[in-house]
């Protein structure tokens, strides 16, 4: 077992895990943060997206042990003090989710995208989010929600 101290959504957390256990399993099974989903376990679907030191990664492709001393951000940390982030609001307003299982990953990835590129083109959104699979929507409403959130965030 490995003992790891890290920060998750800003709060210090210490956990123990198996050396081969993924960060996704740690979040879900040990810390009860089940917002990140396992859709594939091989980095192909993005449902487990979290940020690691500000970069979006698939938490199924990160070992729990690697989180030592790092900053982890999950979907549970996007709303602040009970207030939804513009992306969350626009996802609801634009009906950008049907089943909702890919939504946490999309929100984490889209937030990271907009932090680096506040005014992305449609193509930049589509390519930037190509690692997040959605099987319900055909992406149309997701892309529109991200565009609308970007516009709202630029206005402040």
């Amino acid at each position: 077992m490995v003992r790891v101290t890290t920060r998750i959504n800003g709060d210090e957390v210490t956990f123990v895990c198996e050396p081969d256990e993924t960060l996704l399993d740690v979040l879900r099974d040990r810390l009860n943060l089940t917002g990140a989903k396992e859709g594939c376990g091989t980095g192909d679907c993005g449902a487990c997206s979290v940020t690691l030191d500000g970069r979006v990664v698939c938490s199924c492709l990160v070992l729990g042990a690697e989180a030592e001393g790092r900053q982890v951000g999950t979907v549970e940390g996007i709303a602040r003090n009970g207030k939804l982030h513009p992306l969350q609001e626009k996802f609801l307003e634009f009906a950008a989710l049907q089943c909702g299982v890919c939504t946490p990953g999309f929100l984490v990835a889209a937030k990271a995208l907009l932090e680096r590129n506040p005014d992305p083109t449609e193509a930049e959104i589509r390519f930037g989010l190509a690692g997040n699979l959605c099987r319900c929507t055909g992406y149309d409403k997701i892309v529109r929600a991200v565009q609308a959130a970007a516009a709202a965030m630029r206005k402040g």
């Binding site: 917002g35 979907v75 709303a79 939804l84 996802f91 989710l97």
Partner: peptide, 12 residues
């Protein structure tokens, strides 16, 4: 059910 699904609270 939207709120739960955008904050990661919905239980699948």
């Amino acid at each position: 059910d939207g709120y739960d699904k955008v904050v990661g609270r919905a239980r699948f």
